[in-house]
Structure formats: structure tokens, C-alpha cells
Design a protein around this nucleic acid. Structure first.
Lengths: 229, 229
DNA sequence: CTGCAATTTAAATGATTATTTCAAATAGCT
DNA sequence: AGCTATTTGAAATAATCATTTAAATTGCAG
């Protein structure tokens, strides 16, 4: 079968163009024609190599995710036996790195999909993201101490993720305004390390406070004749 | 001129249908036909009463914002001379109320606009939101103490807003799954008071930590022969 | 009750835009 | 040279919508 074991030039160019295009405009607003122009290939190439647009969408997200994690390992390069605060820092740096890195498209595509759902991507995203989410949750649980309930963990994880994903919600990625029509009202010049450091300190303080509350709640519920709420 | 001083039945019905429709699918994906079906009016009624779709979009957001604030006053019902923590709590309750209340559409429409910008709404949104944003910033500044820089305030405000808006990003508003195709992976049963209380405690702790850092930074920069970083 | 202006209606206009397919051309390999 | 994988350009196919128009209707003032 000639060349093309996997990923001949055209194929790869389409894939890369697709990740960019889908991350900017989402599935519906992106046209195959646009992708092909960006990829420098013929209009028919997408259907030839990927069958249809939906399949390309899935493959593009897979590829974006793979490359994103390759560049920003989820543990942030921190050893698994490092102190929990260090492991926490590593995770946040990794997530925010992926969110803010203009070469990473996985979160952007996922965000577009959530904002204007097609349903095409939910299985793939869930399958790939869940393990990472669970690992972050485990670290948060560790920080909250042994008395933390699942709900405690969920609330704190929510606060943390919200902060990490926020720059994406407001299109504050570097270069975003080159393709986004109107200059958005709030767009501080942000610097990964500055923001990530802030998020880490802010969140560790929030978690410590939650832990205090959890432990005082546990004390109150144990020592005297148990009195709930 | 007959009846219709302002807002005859049809007009109001269109406006209400439009806020709902735009908040669900954004400007582009919403068709005039859809709005008219939802409003129970004729297809031509939008053009007759509002001129065109863009103008309806603007009017719909205006109306959604007005009603949202009417239901959830920005100060959360806390007196202006209350302690700053109380005023902070009031603001958060108000914002999260608006975000999570299924009858409020202002944040949802704004979020759709940000995710898939048309530019049509930016002026109106900015004009209406800025004062409120500034008021929250002022409270954060108060909490951070006199030594806080604009950047300190900005970072903390960002963390707070991120947490408040997060439920919207993940379509966790009550009833969202009735019109959103696929059930999203993470959708905890959330309760306004529970989540808002968490956000308030979490954020106050984060702010307190930031304040500590600001003040130790100020001490370090003053007393000894100034040594930065 | 008449006539006028505001509203509502149904149908059509008109213009656009995109995915997919196809048959022919090309290029690489043996 | 001959086979197969790819690339090409163009066309087929299809699906929509915002907006306009002219006719019908409504409600009120005179």
C-alpha cells in the first residue's frame, strides 16, 4: 500500500489545522473548507482521510490531548513521593500550562464543546479526562485530611478547577484577540507563573480553611452527645 | 395610536422567549422562527416589533439584566455600612443567585456571547456590568488592606468571579439538561446556599492569605535597605 | 358605525453556505 | 509499465434563514 504507514503529510496537516480551527470556532461554525485552506490541502481531503467531519473532530481532540499532555505532564514534573503541597503545585502548573499555552488545544476544544454541545466528543473527553480529574481529587482529599467527605472534596476541587479554567472562559489566552472579533472588556496581560502562583496560594489557603471547618465539625459531632446542625 | 403605550402582549412575549432562546443557544444558533414559536407569535412579529434580530438580541439582554437585578439586588440586601465581610457575602450571594437561578438569563446570554462572539452585545454588557464589577473590586480591595496593588485586587477578583461563574460554564444550572443534548459528566446536585457558602469561606481564606503576603512584602520592602524579590 | 392606524398573518423572496460525492488526473512504488 | 494510493476540481445535493410584502384583521376614536 505504497507509503503512509500512519500519518502521511496531508493527514497530519489536516489534523493540526482541525485542532486549531475547532478550538477557535467549535464544531458547527468550523467548515471543512476552512480546515482545508488552513491545512493547505484539497477540499476533498478530509473526507478521503477521515471519512467525515465528525470523525475528524474526534481524532482532532484526541491528538490535541495527546500533544498537550506530552508538553505538560499532569504531575507537573513533581515526583510522586514529594510532599503533597508540591504535588498540588505541580498539578495546577500543568493544568494552567495547558490552558494558557497557545499551542495546546485540548481544553479549548472541550470548552467549545461544552458551550455548544454536539455530543460527539463527550465519550472521548470523559474517558481521557476522568483519570486526571481523579488524581487531582485525591490530592485535594489528602490536603483536606481524613475527615473530609466526598462533598468537601467536590466543593474544593470545583473552586480550584474554576480558577484554572477561567482564563479560557474569558479568552485570555495569548493571541486570542487575533481571531476573536471584538476586544473583550477584561483582559489583563497575564503571565502563567504569576497567575498560577496566585491560584496555588489562594487555593491552599481556601483548602486549609475548609480543613479547619471539617475538623471542628468532626469534633463537635463526636465528643458531646452527637448533635447535628 | 390605539393601545400599546409600551410593551403590548406580543412584544413582551417575544422578549421573554428571546431571552430564553438566546441563553440556550446563543445568537447565531437561535432562529427567529424558534423564538416566535416559543413566544406563540407570528414569524414576522420580531421584525415588526424590533426591526431585526440584532436589535432584539440587545433588547433581550437588557431586559434579562434588568429582571435579574430586580430579583437579586447586587448588594445581596446587606446594608452599605455593614462589616466588609458581610458586604462581601451579600455580593457573592447575589452573583451566584443570578448565575444559578433558572429564571435569570443575563449571565447565560453573556456567557454565550463570550463563547461565540458576535460583538453585538459587548457595549451593552460592558456598560451595565462595569459598575457592579467595580463595586466588587472595591470590597476586595478593602479586604486586602491598604497596601494592596491593583494587580493584587485583580488576581483575587479573578479567583472569586471564576468560582461564581463556574456552574454556568459546566451547565450546572437547574433544568439545564432538559435542553442540553448529552448529560454532562460532572453535574453534582448543587444547592445555592451550600455552594455559595463554600465559595465565600474559601475566598475569604484566600484573600486573607493574599493580604498576609502583601503585608509581609511591604515590611520586607520598607524596613531594611530595600531588597526586592 | 365608519374609517383609520396599528397589528397580525401567510406566503414568498432571495441569497447563502457547506457537506459529500465523483470521475479524472497524478504520483509513488515494484 | 502497471498497479494502487492519493489528490484534484467541480458539481451535486441539501438545508436554512432573515427579511419583505401585501392582504387580512383588530380595536378604538370620532
Amino acid at each position: 500500500m505504497g507509503r503512509s504507514r500512519e500519518m502521511t503529510g496531508t493527514c497530519r496537516q489536516i489534523l493540526e489545522a482541525a485542532t486549531v480551527a475547532f478550538s477557535r470556532k467549535g464544531f458547527r461554525a468550523t467548515t471543512i473548507a476552512e480546515i482545508c485552506v488552513l491545512a493547505g490541502t484539497n477540499l476533498a481531503s478530509v473526507n478521503y482521510h477521515f471519512g467525515d467531519k465528525e470523525n475528524l473532530y474526534i481524532e482532532a481532540w484526541r491528538e490535541a490531548f495527546r500533544r498537550s499532555l506530552e508538553k505538560h505532564p499532569p504531575d507537573g514534573g513533581v515526583a510522586p513521593d514529594a510532599p503533597v503541597e508540591e504535588r498540588f503545585r505541580g498539578r495546577i502548573m500543568s493544568i494552567m500550562g495547558r490552558v494558557l499555552d497557545p499551542e495546546c488545544y485540548d481544553f479549548e476544544i472541550a470548552h467549545m464543546e461544552i458551550g455548544n454541545p454536539t455530543g460527539i466528543l463527550f465519550d472521548v473527553i470523559h474517558e481521557h479526562m476522568e483519570p486526571l480529574d481523579a488524581e487531582l481529587d485525591a490530592i485535594v482529599r489528602e490536603l483536606l485530611g481524613p475527615r473530609a467527605t466526598a462533598e468537601d472534596v467536590q466543593l474544593c476541587s470545583m473552586s480550584i478547577r474554576a480558577q484554572c479554567l477561567n482564563p479560557m472562559v474569558f479568552s485570555m489566552r495569548p493571541g486570542a484577540h487575533e481571531y476573536l472579533p471584538p476586544p473583550l472588556p477584561l483582559s489583563p496581560k497575564l503571565n502563567l507563573v504569576l497567575v498560577a502562583d496566585h491560584v496555588i496560594r489562594f487555593s491552599l489557603a481556601g483548602i486549609a480553611e475548609a480543613r479547619r471547618q471539617i475538623e471542628s465539625r468532626a469534633r463537635a459531632g463526636k465528643q458531646p452527645a452527637a448533635r447535628r446542625r
